[in-house]
């Protein structure tokens, strides 16, 4: 179970070292659903999964930011991934959960919740099950956040680089939110 290296994630998507990408990305992924599509998050990015709780809106934030929650005394921002991915917004269901993710940015842990339709499972994706993202997607570099495409049975799982999902500015914004609330 090789741990996906944070630095390599960024470089791999752009450098396109096809033979290595599977081995680099193989590992456990927390899979979840948005609409009918499946996405995967590297397990080590996931802090925990919590059920849907009251989200406090923060004024004058971007639309995809649902607000902040109080997670055991710690205020973290919650991002609506549907909104972020330009999907139509829907009402929350009893399956809607918040996946709390965390990663380090210059030794500062960035924590945030992402709102997904349904959490599926912790899936072990082997190297041969992973393919690089097709060039088609990478137009304008807007889809850099896709690490690769995982295949399980007949399903297709978009492996997300959560750090790329939000741009640096947005991340900073989130962090400022987090800091201001903290």
């Amino acid at each position: 179970m090789p741990e996906p290296v944070k630095d390599s994630n960024k470089t791999d998507t752009t450098s396109g070292e096809v033979p290595n990408i599977g081995q680099q990305l193989a590992g456990k992924y927390m899979t979840f659903k948005l609409a009918s599509e499946e996405y995967g998050l590297a397990i080590l990015r996931v802090r925990e999964i919590i059920g849907l709780m009251d989200i406090t809106r923060v004024p004058r934030t971007k639309e995809f930011i649902r607000g902040v929650i109080n997670l055991r005394g710690k205020v973290i921002p919650v991002v609506d991934l549907r909104m972020k991915f330009n999907m139509p917004s829907t009402e929350s269901t009893d399956q809607t959960v918040i996946i709390v993710v965390q990663w380090l940015v210059s030794n500062n842990a960035t924590t945030m919740g992402i709102l997904v339709d349904e959490v599926l499972e912790v899936l072990n994706i082997a190297a041969e099950q992973i393919e690089p993202p097709p060039e088609l997607y990478s137009r304008n570099g807007e889809t850099d956040f896709i690490l690769g495409i995982g295949k399980a049975d007949k399903r297709v799982i978009c492996l997300l680089d959560i750090e790329q999902v939000l741009s640096k500015d947005e991340t900073m914004h989130l962090r400022s939110l987090e800091a201001s609330e903290a």
């Binding site: 179970m1 456990k28 927390m30 397990i43 080590l44 996931v46 802090r47 925990e48 999964i49 919590i50 059920g51 009893d94 399956q95 959960v97 959490v119 499972e121 912790v122």
Partner: peptide, 29 residues
């Protein structure tokens, strides 16, 4: 259903924790 949902979340969280624990958490996983 609610219990099952929560249990599922717990299990997933446990899996996350197990993953974090590396080889030590394999059994727990």
């Amino acid at each position: 259903n609610e219990i099952a949902f929560q249990t599922n979340l717990l299990a997933l969280n446990a899996a996350v924790e197990a993953a974090r624990a590396g080889d030590a958490g394999r059994g727990f996983a």
